[in-house]
Amino acid sequence: MSEVVTLGEAMACLRADGPINLGGGAHISVAGAEANVAIGLARLGHGVSFAGAVGPDRLGDLVRRTLRAEGVAVGALRTDPAPTGIVVFEQRMTGVTRVDYHRRASAGGTLSAGDVESAFALHPSPPRVLHVTGVTPALGPGPAQAVQAAVRLARSAGARVCLDVNHRARLWSESTARRTLTALAVQADIVVASEEELPLTGAGGGEAELVAGLLAAGVSEVVVKRGAAGASVVTTRETLHLPARPVTAVDPIGAGDAFVAGYLSGVLDGLPAAARLARGVTTGAFAVACHGDWEGLPTRSELDMLDLPDGSAVR
């Protein structure tokens, strides 16, 4: 049984060993915001189903195999005639990464409302949470309709909807993003955004006004990711903030997705807001401290490892 359903674009990922223009080697893996969250939740022991599309190629096989190996249900991951998309990461220096997408006319952009309806039909009972991001509706009309259909089905089934704004400025104009994301945000139960992304969820004003507007529209909790400064959550009853966990930063890519996985895990476990935030900043720290979008994400038994002193050996 899937506690969580998510949908989006899962891609093959090439991580260059050095500057790409000099040639050299690269590590092949899998990436995609929603796929990262799905893997993070599965490692924490939750049932997760991923809906999407990959190509009839070896890279599509890699995506499917990786998700399945990580415990993510892939019954709703369709094979499309279009090729699997590719994202290339070049860590130019510590803390600075170039990201180059090769997704035009790729399988991920063929996601449709029919895929989502098929995904929900696979489950005898509805999920507890639907997780969507602002990346998917930016991919085109079909993916945008898929997100809207997913939200509609989730709400009709009584599932909670989590929207991570996750804005990609290169995919669409700010005006289109604001219009689409504002409409999605007011249908969500949980809205997650960075400080820079929050203005895309409302009509204007500062952070306090934007958060108040979302809560007044029916959102139950607004979570603000603040990077190295930690994260905050605001509900109608309380406002809480936690600093980031201190770790040596190796690779910042995927930290936001890791945070969302931890936070949603806390939601599924019925934890209070402070404990949900604590789990989110913990999983985010694991991501920052390791190379890769999701490779370093913790299992449930590893959540306490950040509390160990330097030089500890876990035997």
Results as ranks from 00 to 15, higher is better:
residue 25 G to V: 05
residue 306 L to I: 01
residue 78 R to L: 02
residue 51 A to G: 01
residue 159 A to E: 01
residue 192 V to Q: 10
residue 199 P to D: 02
residue 99 V to L: 14
residue 265 S to W: 02
residue 5 V to E: 04
residue 226 R to S: 11
residue 24 G to E: 05
residue 128 R to F: 15
residue 269 D to N: 12
residue 114 G to C: 06
residue 72 V to L: 02
residue 52 G to M: 02
residue 10 A to R: 12
residue 196 E to W: 01
residue 101 Y to F: 13
residue 127 P to D: 06
residue 240 L to S: 05
residue 2 S to A: 08
residue 186 V to G: 02
residue 22 L to W: 15
residue 172 W to I: 03
residue 42 A to W: 06
residue 194 S to G: 15
residue 64 R to A: 15
residue 5 V to G: 04
residue 264 L to K: 14
residue 83 P to K: 07
residue 250 V to K: 08
residue 82 A to V: 01
residue 83 P to G: 11
residue 249 A to E: 14
residue 289 A to F: 01
residue 234 V to E: 02
residue 264 L to I: 15
residue 216 A to Q: 12
residue 193 A to D: 05
residue 289 A to S: 08
residue 286 F to P: 15
residue 96 V to A: 01
residue 175 S to Q: 00
residue 288 V to I: 15
residue 134 G to F: 10
residue 58 R to D: 15
residue 129 V to H: 07
residue 136 T to P: 06
residue 212 A to P: 00
residue 113 A to L: 00
residue 248 T to I: 10
residue 131 H to N: 13
residue 180 T to I: 03
residue 8 G to N: 09
residue 47 G to R: 04
residue 83 P to Y: 06
residue 20 I to S: 08
residue 92 R to M: 07
residue 31 A to R: 02
residue 120 F to R: 03
residue 15 R to V: 12
residue 15 R to H: 07
residue 8 G to D: 10
residue 303 L to I: 13
residue 149 A to T: 07
residue 246 P to S: 12
residue 124 P to R: 11
residue 219 V to L: 01
residue 53 A to C: 03
residue 16 A to N: 09
residue 233 V to I: 14
residue 213 G to R: 00
residue 109 G to R: 15
residue 123 H to Q: 14
residue 278 A to V: 15
residue 246 P to Y: 15
residue 252 P to H: 12
residue 106 S to T: 06
residue 280 G to D: 13
residue 296 G to F: 13
residue 273 A to C: 12
residue 256 G to Q: 13
residue 280 G to Y: 11
residue 224 V to N: 07
residue 230 G to C: 07
residue 58 R to N: 08
residue 254 G to Y: 09
residue 160 R to E: 00
residue 219 V to W: 01
residue 16 A to G: 06
residue 306 L to P: 05
residue 91 Q to D: 03
residue 141 P to Q: 13
residue 124 P to Y: 05
residue 168 R to G: 02
